[in-house]
Design a protein around this nucleic acid. Sequence first.
DNA 1: CTCGTGACTTACG
DNA 2: ACGTAAGCCACGA
Length: 103
Amino acid sequence: MAALTQFQLICYKLLKRVPSGKVTTYKALAKAMGTKAYRAVGNAMKLNPFAPEVPCHRVVKSDGRVGNYSAEGRIKRKIELLRNEGIKIKEGKIELKKYLHEF
DNA sequence: CTCGTGACTTACG
DNA sequence: ACGTAAGCCACGA
């Protein structure tokens, strides 16, 4: 059962705001919630009880790299999903200039 | 409370 | 560009 904390709920809520075809970074996410818990944000994604509801695959690292992914297929799956949304990826990297969504 | 872990970031060499 | 170190926060044991 989901024994969620406030921190998690905020992460998911913000993440749901990200439209399809766009991505966000852990940094932007943490900043939007008023904290520097970049790592904690990642932990929240890992927990992700709202799997398809929360587009955790749209969260990438601040340098444009895909980062990690806990679901089946790991990073491969994440890239596939992003590509499916119309996002082009270069050697595991994303053009943040083009796809970065700011809150 | 202290400690270890992590889907991170930045700085330095 | 690459690897390492330090900093940062949340969570479970």
